[in-house]
Design a protein around this nucleic acid. Structure first.
Lengths: 171, 171
DNA sequence: TTGATTGCAAAGCATTTGCATGCTA
DNA sequence: TAGCATGCAAATGCTTTGCAATCAA
């Protein structure tokens, strides 16, 4: 179930179809990048992903990773997320249904959450303005449980890893 | 009521106090920048504001506008907003209570809205994770009423002005 | 007078593009 | 073979900083 041949089958097919529909071409680099992207449970910048790919194929360049992420976004396999530090992060949907983010401004931890009520209210709100929503982004900034406690020590300086915490769905 | 002497009195005082508390200095540039910033009912980048300031005092430089906006943010008079186009916009609170944004991806129009229910649910959500929210940002992207209609014509290319629509509070 | 402020120019960063070469279909 | 893909290097765009001259207190 987790061997390379069968994993990410759906995603790979979606990608293939998108490539064909757009008259583009299937390449080894694109395959590898998608594979590694899906395999990684973190929010990645193009740069981050580049280094991961480097480990397995040192000939792949920044540009290709960058362009492939754009491609994956078009294909609906990736989503761009901004946490406010000026960088563009990407996340995939594999194992992660639609969700929003809480971001700890101290340690950079990212908590994924989902609230059906909030979603519903957003649509309601949009309706009132005749606005047709395509997508949305809700970020709650603040301090995570842990960083609230260790407030006594001199706070470690900002933005660490950006660990993608296992999605917890509470509605 | 709207003459220069009495307008923005509260804001100017907040700014003065912040300046004094921080051991900084009162300058003509900072006054002018604040004045023009508050007077403008749009989401402004540092660059945008720079050009507005230029009209009234051509000696003021980019850097000062940039740094003053940071200062105003610290003082709680300005808020940084990102609409996803890579730029940092600023908005003020004068005449605008806390709100969120709907952004038309076609014409760039920004609708401000507020929902007490959504606010409450966000806090509830944060509580479930032991997360202490400091602030949040909710953006709904989609098509505004007008752009839904003129969908037949070839869509005009992206990101226009970013008009700040009069805030409509619906809760 | 002291030290913050200013504005120019240049550095930083992340992102994006031009172009010659390589590779898929 | 045609033309898309690649990857290097360089350009771009926005933000930030160094520094000498200027100005508020």
């Amino acid at each position: 179930m987790t061997d390379k041949k069968t994993k990410f089958q759906t995603e790979k097919q979606i990608f293939s179809e998108h490539i064909q529909k757009s008259g583009l071409r299937h390449t080894a680099q694109r395959d590898l990048i998608l594979e590694i992207f899906l395999r990684t449970e973190e929010h990645l910048t193009s740069e981050d992903l580049y280094w991961l790919v480097q480990k397995e194929d040192a000939t792949v360049g920044h540009t290709t990773v960058y362009r492939t992420l754009k491609l994956l976004t078009e294909a609906g396999l990736a989503r761009e997320v901004r946490f406010g530090d000026g960088k563009t992060y990407y996340e995939h949907h594999y194992n992660h249904a639609h969700h929003d983010h809480m971001i700890c401004t101290e340690c950079g931890q990212v908590i994924e959450f989902f609230s059906a009520e909030i979603e519903a209210l957003q649509d309601l709100m949009a309706n009132k303005f005749g606005f047709k929503p395509t997508h949305h982004s809700l970020r709650i900034l603040g301090l995570c449980e842990n960083c609230q406690k260790i407030n006594t020590e001199t706070a470690a300086s900002g933005a660490q890893p950006r660990v993608r915490v296992k999605s917890v769905v509470v509605s």
